[in-house]
Computed example of a mutant assay.
Amino acid sequence: MSQDKKIPKPVTAQSLRNAALRYLDRFATSRENLRQVLMRRVQKSHYHHNTSLEEASQWIEDLLDKLQDAKFVDDLRYAEGRAGALHRKGTSQRVIRMKLKEKGIREEDINQALDALREETDSPNLERDAAIALAKRRRLGPWRLPEKRKAMRDKDLAALARAGFSYDLAQDIINASTVEELEKFTNN
C-alpha cells in the first residue's frame, strides 16, 4: 500500500504570512533563517504549481520587512538569546559564532551578542566556564567514575576538542583531580 504524497497548495502572500507567524509562534529565529523556511515553501509551490519565484521572493522580502519593523524578527535579540543558551550548554565561542553565522546573523550582531554574554556572565573566562559546563553535562574528566577516568582520558580530551575548545583548556579540565578543584577556579 503506497501512500500518495500530499500536494501542497499554491503559496500566496497571505499563506506565506500565516506560515511565518506560525513559525515565529513556535521558534525564535533570524531574518535569514525565516527567509529560508519560507523559500522552501515557495520552491515546493513552484515545483507543483509553477509559482513565480520572483514574485514570491518579493512577497517574502516585504513580509520580512514588516515583521522586522514590528520587532517579531530581531537578529540581535535572537543572537543574544541563542549565544546565552549555547554557552550554558557548554558550547565554545568558536562554535557559537559558527552556529549564528549558519542562521544568517551578521558579524556585528554576533560580536555584540558575545559582548553581551561576557557582561551578563561577569566571568573572566567564558571558554573555561563553557568547557566545564560541557564536561559536567557529559560526565567527562573529574565527573567520570574514578575507575574509568584513566582509560577514557583520550576520549574525554577528544570530546572537548570536537566541541571547539583548545587542547590546553581541555587538558586542564580533564586532568583536574576533583570537581571542587575546577569549581574553585570558576567561582573566583
Rank of each mutant, 00 (worst) to 15 (best):
M1R: 11
M1N: 12
M1T: 12
M1Q: 11
S2L: 15
D4N: 14
K5F: 10
I7A: 10
P10R: 13
V11A: 05
T12W: 13
S15N: 12
L16W: 00
L16G: 00
N18G: 11
Y23Q: 06
T29C: 06
S30N: 03
R31N: 13
E32M: 11
E32R: 09
N33Q: 13
R35F: 05
V37S: 05
L38E: 03
R40C: 01
Q43N: 07
S45I: 03
H48G: 06
S52E: 09
S52A: 10
L53F: 06
L53Y: 06
L53P: 06
E54K: 11
E55R: 14
A56W: 03
A56L: 04
Q58L: 13
D62S: 14
L63A: 04
L63G: 01
L67S: 04
Q68I: 04
D74L: 02
E80I: 13
R82C: 01
G84P: 00
A85T: 10
A85E: 10
L86A: 07
H87P: 02
H87K: 08
R88D: 15
G90D: 10
T91Q: 03
T91I: 00
S92E: 04
S92T: 04
Q93K: 13
Q93E: 15
V95Q: 12
V95S: 07
L100S: 01
K101C: 06
K101F: 11
G104Y: 03
I105A: 00
E107R: 09
E108C: 06
Q112A: 15
A113Q: 05
L114S: 10
D115C: 09
A116H: 15
A116C: 09
L117A: 07
R118Q: 14
E119M: 11
D122L: 14
S123W: 05
P124D: 14
N125F: 12
N125R: 11
R128I: 06
D129R: 13
A130R: 03
A130E: 09
I132H: 01
A135N: 07
A135K: 03
R138P: 02
R138I: 01
R139E: 12
G141A: 11
P142C: 08
W143R: 02
W143G: 05
R144W: 05
L145F: 11
P146Q: 12
P146I: 04
E147T: 15
K148H: 14
K148S: 13
R149S: 07
K150C: 01
A151G: 06
R153S: 05
K155N: 10
K155V: 09
D156S: 10
L157F: 05
L160I: 04
A161R: 08
A161C: 04
S166V: 07
S166M: 04
S166I: 05
Y167Q: 11
A170N: 01
D172R: 15
D172V: 08
T178C: 14
E180K: 12
E180F: 11
E183N: 13
T186R: 13
T186W: 08
N187K: 13
